[in-house]
Computed example of a mutant assay.
Amino acid sequence: MSTAHTVDGLLEIPTIDVSAYRTVNSTAHQRDSIANEVDRAARTVGFMQIIGHGIPEATLTGFTSATDAFFALDGEAKSAYRCPPSVNRGYTPPKSEALANSLGIISAADLFEAFNIGSQASDHPDLALSAADYPENVWPGEVADFASAVGDWFDAAGRVARLMVRIFGRALGVGEDGLTGYTDHSVDLLRMINYRLPSADIELEPDQLGMGAHTDYGIVTVLWADAVPGLEILGADATWHPVQPSPGALLVNLGDALARWTNDRWISTMHRVAAPRVNGTLVPRRSAAYFHDGNIDAVIAPLPTCVSSDRPALYEPVTIQEHLRAKLAGSRSRVLNPSADREAARLHTAAGLSSG
């Protein structure tokens, strides 16, 4: 699996304006230009800053107000919405997950707390989807507008994710609809994440992180985050590089499914969230990641346009279901994933990381 490229020790996250792709009268030249920019970012770093995404500021304001109100509740109230590890919904308390376990690596528990919603079996009544893969959402009753405000952001971020999939198809030479057939009942998840620690001088375990090193699991992630230090990307120079979103931009990064589909032409970038600090002091940080992971029955296998005699297929076919279950068993159930050798090997080269 490829690694983000650095130039003179710097990691550039390109800013790409997709507004022309959202207009019905955009030209083929405009769309090709955007697709080429996305292809370049996907080949070199696997992350991009997306502007012109069309999400109103009011949608973000309502969303962050609702999530702030939920995370401000006391621990007992929040824990009432905790689900079993096998159900990727509801509340996750601090130190109950370790994302590095999804790479088969032992690590300290991560500091973040989170609340998850996602696509449900009831959203597709004609498909008889399994509730194990598409569980129903739980909604906290203490915050009156939580469901509507969070639902509005879920819908808006989902539109950006689906737009990106169309751009990906054009960039990969399979057409704008070339990948959409794998996503018409996609397993999508919105994870609202809070790094507000109990106190600024809390003592951390050795190597403890806000969120451990990992690659994302599916096709594409649409991320909103505070302009607070924390997010870091592992570069080809085996060091971690800080990344912060530009004002008004959404960070978009690629997941394992897309790396597999592109036969590692595109990068599923290793990233983590360090314990957020400003001037050496732990500070609050918020983010919200929308994961667009693909249909549960979709088969991940290298696309014909990404395989050649010089570059044979690097991956055996696997379903989205098989892939997601192995990854989630690692992060949520703390069962080390035995099927992530390629990703784990990259992490073991990072500066200062031991092999144990």
Rank of each mutant, 00 (worst) to 15 (best):
S130P: 00
E76R: 14
L204S: 14
T27F: 02
W266L: 07
L231V: 05
F146W: 11
H29L: 11
D32M: 06
S354A: 12
I51D: 06
A329Y: 01
M1W: 03
D8W: 01
H53M: 01
T305Q: 05
M164D: 04
V228L: 07
A132L: 13
D74A: 04
I16A: 09
V273P: 09
D123I: 02
F47W: 15
L347E: 01
V318S: 14
A80K: 13
V174I: 15
E232A: 13
K78Y: 03
A66M: 05
P312Y: 12
D126C: 00
V307Y: 02
Q49E: 15
I219W: 09
V228T: 15
P93T: 03
A275E: 06
T221F: 06
E343T: 07
R285L: 07
T349A: 12
A66F: 05
D237E: 10
I106R: 12
G52V: 03
R191V: 09
V143N: 08
R170H: 10
H292M: 02
A131K: 10
L189A: 09
L231Y: 08
I296E: 10
L324G: 01
G169R: 11
G294L: 04
K95W: 08
F47Y: 12
A72F: 00
A121I: 00
P140D: 07
R89S: 08
F146L: 04
L251D: 05
N25A: 10
L231C: 13
S26C: 14
A227E: 15
F70H: 02
D123W: 12
H53P: 02
M211N: 15
S309I: 01
D155T: 14
V252L: 06
S107D: 10
